[in-house]
Design a protein around this nucleic acid. Sequence first.
DNA 1: GCGACAG
DNA 2: ATCTTGTCGC
Length: 228
Amino acid sequence: MEVRDLHPWPDTRAEAEAIQDGLRPLLDLDSPGPVRPRTVAGLDVSYAGDGDGTGARLAAAAVVLDAATLRVVEESVAVGTAAFPYIPGLFAFRELPTLVEALRGLRTVPDLLVCDGFGVAHPRRFGLACHVGVLTGLPAIGVGKTAFVGEHATPGPRRGDASPLTDDGEVVGRVLRTQDDVKPVFVSVGHRTGLDDACRIVLELAPDYRLPETTRRADRLSRDALRS
DNA sequence: GCGACAG
DNA sequence: ATCTTGTCGC
């Protein structure tokens, strides 16, 4: 599939933040988004080592599933190098180049992208899912495993229970329980999707495990690609 | 100034 | 993310 060319690459933290600020106005946070996506792509990245600096070997995977059956429609992997040090808030710059390469290897154009990490639930309201959404033009959401920004009440214990994730007085996402008595995930919108739809789709993608099947598939594929 | 801090 | 032993449970 087509993906917009990467903007000039930042060498410093300030440049990276400037890029986020420049791209943020391109976000579409009002469109209804895909109510019934037929295909959903999961994105994930695995690392080889080398700590949090630049240069670590990594593998990025994009796995397209049929949303109704959760069967794999297509897979794409790319190996590369960490393009930026790990800095909370600038996480996207670390793996974006390789992730984009994996997306370009896709023949299918998915109806929705599910990223590991966050969308607008981000200090500058421009997390990885926003970045990927703007670069591809596709609806995108983020599913994070641990808290990053904002405050939230503990959601109820049952699958489907949720509580709003708020930051500076605005709702930036939702803490969603995907399985009974299992630690919830953090869902936030990235691009061209509503929060209600995002949460409903995440639940549909996670019938048996805490994380959506899209993420689990991409995680496994990227990990396997790293050892070869 | 200090602690926290997606993956 | 990754590094890792043991442990609980289907």
